[in-house]
Computed example of a mutant assay.
Amino acid sequence: MPEDKGLVLIVEDEAHIADLQRLYLTRDGFGVHVESDGRAGLAAARRLRPVTIVLDLTLPGLDGIEFCRLLRDSGDWTPVVMVTARDEEADRIIGLELGADDYLTKPFSPRELVARIRTVLRRAAGPPAEPVLTLGALTLDPARRTVHHEGRPVDLTTTEFNLLAYLMRRPGQVFTRAQLLSHVWGYADYRDGRVVDVYVSQLRAKLGGAGPIRTVRGVGYSLGPA
């Protein structure tokens, strides 16, 4: 019998897609709860406390964008894998800016969905017993998954936290977008470089104008003293 890996909430209004996702996730050891309406899905997220949410962008009642906005505004940082039928950069960027941790464009393999969920959960778990990281006015605690900048707490999504932690473990080192995609997201596709830019922009906004992330023109990003 597969091990119990926790509950995944699927919010998907196309029953055949939800059934296929349920089948593969169940085989992999996850419990699964399905809702076909955005409002019912949001209520289930608050009631069931899943380990991950697979969220369709286009839903009746409440679309995926508003779902994600309301979830994050309430302080719920459960990892979200957003699913969209439209392969448009604007859709992906809006979802990421609202706090989605990953995205998939339909049609996709259910095996890829399972792999993406595993990756998101590994990132959320973080490395065990790692010491607190400090760089200037910035402090990151990998065990508690907390960040403070100039003494104030900073709320980050799972992916924002992992990107910042990766850079803080290697201060001064310059990374290309492809390298960051590979090491932080678990895959590398030069066409997705804009995703890295979005997350860096989000981190800068949350850390304030004196944040430590530096752009290295023509190359990528580095972390220097705050």
Rank of each mutant, 00 (worst) to 15 (best):
Ala44Asp: 09
Gly29Ser: 06
Asp73Pro: 10
His33Leu: 04
Trp77Lys: 01
Gly193Pro: 03
Ala125Pro: 11
Ala125Tyr: 07
Phe67Gln: 01
Leu164Phe: 15
Arg111His: 11
Val34Gln: 05
Leu156Trp: 15
Arg49Ile: 07
Glu3Pro: 03
Ala85His: 03
Asp56Cys: 05
Tyr221Asp: 04
Asp37His: 02
Val147Pro: 13
Glu12Gln: 06
Val51Phe: 09
Arg46Glu: 11
Arg86Gln: 05
Thr26Val: 12
Arg86Gly: 05
Arg144Ser: 10
Pro2Cys: 03
Asp13Phe: 06
Leu96Ala: 02
Ala137Lys: 12
Tyr103Phe: 08
Val54Met: 06
Gln173Gly: 06
Leu57Gln: 01
Trp185Leu: 04
Gly151Ile: 14
Ile53Arg: 03
Arg92Trp: 01
Asp197Ser: 07
Val147Leu: 10
Thr134Cys: 12
Val219Leu: 12
Asp28Val: 02
Arg22Gly: 15
Arg46Asp: 07
Leu167Asp: 14
Asp87Thr: 12
Leu98Val: 01
Pro50Val: 02
Asp192Tyr: 02
Val196Asn: 01
Ala178Gln: 04
Thr52Gly: 03
Gln179Asn: 07
Leu207Val: 15
Ile213Ala: 14
Arg214His: 12
Leu135Ala: 13
Phe30Ser: 02
Leu42Gln: 10
Leu42Phe: 10
Leu167Gln: 11
Tyr187Glu: 06
Thr146Ser: 10
Thr84His: 01
Val219Ile: 13
Gly220Val: 04
Ala43Thr: 03
Leu207Gln: 15
Ala188Gly: 04
Asn162Thr: 11
Arg144Ile: 05
Gly151Val: 15
His33Tyr: 07
Leu104Gln: 04
Leu140Ala: 13
Ser201Glu: 02
His149Met: 09
Leu163Met: 13
Val216Ile: 10
Leu164Gln: 15
Leu180Lys: 10
Leu180Val: 08
Gly218His: 13
Ala40Trp: 03
Asp192Thr: 03
Glu130Lys: 05
Ala226Phe: 01
Leu57Ile: 09
Ala165Asn: 14
Glu66His: 07
Arg69Phe: 15
Pro171Leu: 03
Leu121Arg: 03
Gly136Glu: 00
Arg123Trp: 10
Asn162Cys: 07
Ala90Ile: 15
Ala15Cys: 02
Asp102Leu: 00
Arg92Gln: 07
Pro2Lys: 03
Pro127Val: 09
Gly38Leu: 00
Val80Leu: 08
Ala129Leu: 12
Asp63Asn: 06
Ile53Val: 11
Val184Asn: 05
Val83Trp: 04
His183Val: 10
Pro153Arg: 08
Leu133Phe: 14
Gly61Gln: 00
Leu113Glu: 12
Leu98Asp: 00
Leu59Val: 12
Val32Phe: 08
Gly41Trp: 00
Ile17Trp: 02
Pro225His: 13
Tyr166His: 11
Arg194Tyr: 06
Glu160His: 14
Ala15Asn: 05
Leu113Ser: 06
Ala100Leu: 02
Asp87Phe: 11
Pro128Ser: 00
Arg204Ala: 12
Arg144Pro: 07
Asp19Leu: 06
His183Lys: 09
Pro153Glu: 05
Arg191Gly: 08
Ala124Asp: 14
Arg118Glu: 02
Arg152Gly: 05
Ala90Lys: 13
